[in-house]
Design a protein around this nucleic acid. Structure first.
Lengths: 148, 148
DNA sequence: ACGTATAGTTAGTTTTATGAAACTAACTAA
DNA sequence: TTAGTTAGTTTCATAAAACTAACTATACGT
């Protein structure tokens, strides 16, 4: 099987499997109604906000390829529920920054536990040496992509 | 960095990067309006249908953890646009099977090209040996997960 | 043959996501 | 100071996705 095919297959299998895993995690978590009553899109926003330092509305619009108005609405919804905070730039009063609140950080941490479960699922296939190698390569790939 | 952290980071980085990559692919593809005027959810349905042989409505509802009525509506929408076909079981006339039409198969193939681009992005980080190792391990993981 | 269970559909509703257009406030350059 | 731009918001409209409840048609057990 060619390299590309392996990757495409892996993308399909792993993303299906992860969705399933996250769904189970959500079901198992207590108070999940309150915490997880967020759409996938809203979770994407929280992640994107966590990954950068204080993005602006326009940056988020750029990242997701949507209109600024869409971001305004989405962020305001997260604001109402206390997951994020907004604050103005001092040098340019038009600009609005967004960051996670403590509650938002906490939520994402709980969500990460689902990722951990999935990570376990992946790792239980491999022996100790393979695990090290896999982790090393994954890390290399990840770092490279982050750097663009 | 611990194994789990590497994986969680990789999930975040890779899924962000892939979303971005698929968006670009979509923009670059001609006739994308007609072909890709599908939501992410609808694409998930097409993938799920491709991965199995002739799932029923109830099976799809189980897979996605939604009501059967939701699946009926989603599948009918795909049916109207000619991406899937429905046909009844011969042994139980209540049961409806779903499969991809030729047009649906074609669509997914085009979408796979986006995955290929992403695969390229991943692979360009690694040298020949690393690539082989990475592919081998990924294949092992994937096969194991598929087998449940 | 009758009653119940199952597979799927239909109707109606709610929530979320999105875009377009009109708007305010703030900044920039001439 | 005036004209134009930029950042963000608000309002309005629409579509997708999900649910519940009521329904049809089929299957099955007794």
């Amino acid at each position: 099987m060619a390299t590309k095919e392996v990757i495409v297959k892996a993308i399909n299998v792993l993303s299906d499997s992860m969705r399933e895993c996250m769904r189970k995690h959500k079901e198992q978590t207590p108070n999940s109604q309150e915490l997880f009553n967020l759409s996938i899109t809203q979770l994407h926003y929280l992640h994107a906000i966590r990954e950068r330092t204080n993005p602006t509305i326009s940056e988020l619009a750029e990242i997701f390829g949507v209109q600024r108005s869409t971001v305004t609405v989405a962020v305001n919804k997260l604001l109402q529920r206390g997951f994020v905070e907004k604050f103005s730039s001092q040098s340019d009063l038009r600009v609005v920054y967004v960051r996670l609140s403590e509650k938002g950080k906490h939520l994402i941490q709980i969500e990460d536990l689902g990722y951990y479960q999935f990570a376990d699922l992946i790792m239980e296939t491999l022996d100790e040496t393979e695990r090290k190698t896999f982790t090393f390569l994954l890390n290399k790939v990840t770092n490279n992509i982050t750097r663009n």
